[in-house]
């Protein structure tokens, strides 16, 4: 039904656009414009691209571009390399993620303990890997991982463990990447956990102590429940970050040996910038987006229940 002009803006729920935009619009407009220009627009462009076969030939001459519908996605799901990459990425997320969160929680509890002196120093030391350039870290870790001259194998050798070819053996390359990634990243989550821990009122512990709860019981019944929101935040941020595994294998192994450290983002990078199959690479990006979205929603749902 067409409303007369005067009535159009007077619906009782106030859901329609006001006649004059509120001043708030002007405050958010610059940021919105930037997000639109540098984020939404490229995302929409990439979505379009994922339905084309944009490649070297199209880069040279746009008339060689074809709209191919869902073909990139269909090919992607038939590509054994994609499934390898997905498997590797899930391996990294499912093993590396909990390990990283657990490790940061442990470090946070230790650093935050009242008996610890020089808290600031330990916090800084544990946070250092986070701010160190990954490439520099990778160079050092490659020495540590060296099968014959590396410190790690030397240490294991003292316990009689035969040398492990960390980055050359398909079975060990991913654990090696996980170990390095956990070491590199746990400091960030640790800081967040420390903030969470410091927000727990002391009187809760005092009350628990009066009720006769020991340290373990206090941890289970006071610390953990009070940390739930922090946990949720850390878990989701870690999940999203770990799904986007790229720099570690890119610098350390280039996806090898035998594609055992090829992650989805690395596959996307190789398709996009090595072979210039931008259409296919965009499809990979959107599939990864869908996977991360689904994993995040599951995580949120699980916490809410």
């Amino acid at each position: 039904m067409r409303l007369p002009a005067g009535q159009r803006n007077s619906d009782p729920l106030g859901t329609s656009w006001p006649q004059r935009p509120s001043p708030a619009v002007w405050f958010i407009a610059p940021a919105l414009a930037l997000i639109g220009l540098f984020f939404l627009l490229p995302v929409a462009g990439a979505l379009l691209l994922s339905f084309t076969d944009f490649d070297l030939y199209a880069l040279g001459d746009l008339s060689n571009l074809r709209f191919v519908g869902w073909r990139n996605y269909r090919l992607l799901f038939q590509d054994p390399l994609f499934w390898t990459a997905l498997k590797n990425t899930l391996y990294f997320v499912l093993v590396g993620g909990p390990l990283s969160v657990g490790f940061s929680l442990g470090a946070a509890l230790l650093v935050n303990h009242r008996l610890v002196r020089c808290k600031g120093l330990f916090r800084t030391v544990f946070f250092l890997p986070v701010v160190t350039t990954l490439v520099a870290v990778a160079v050092v870790w490659r020495y540590l991982y060296h099968p014959r001259y590396g410190l790690l194998n030397y240490g294991l050798g003292l316990f009689g463990v035969a040398p492990i070819d960390w980055l050359g053996d398909p079975d060990w390359a991913m654990p090696a990447i996980i170990l390095m990634a956990v070491w590199k990243n746990f400091g960030f989550n640790m800081i967040i956990f420390i903030a969470g821990l410091q927000n727990i009122p002391v009187h809760l512990y005092e009350a628990a102590a009066i009720d006769g709860a020991g340290p373990w019981r206090q941890f289970r019944s006071v610390t953990l429940p009070m940390l739930t929101p922090t946990f949720l935040f850390v878990a989701i941020i870690t999940l999203i970050g770990y799904f986007q595994l790229f720099a570690e294998p890119y610098v350390m192994t280039q996806g090898g040996p035998a594609n055992s450290t090829l992650s989805i983002v690395l596959l996307m990078y190789q398709e996009g910038f090595r072979w210039w199959n931008m259409g296919y690479a965009s499809a990979v990006a959107f599939v990864l987006f869908a996977i991360i979205l689904a994993a995040t929603l599951i995580q949120l749902r699980r916490r809410r229940d």
């Binding site: 060296h146 014959r148 001259y149 980055l167 050359g168 192994t253 040996p257 035998a258």
Partner: peptide, 8 residues
Amino acid sequence: AVGETQIA
């Protein structure tokens, strides 16, 4: 059976 990266 070694790859390039395995040859120290």
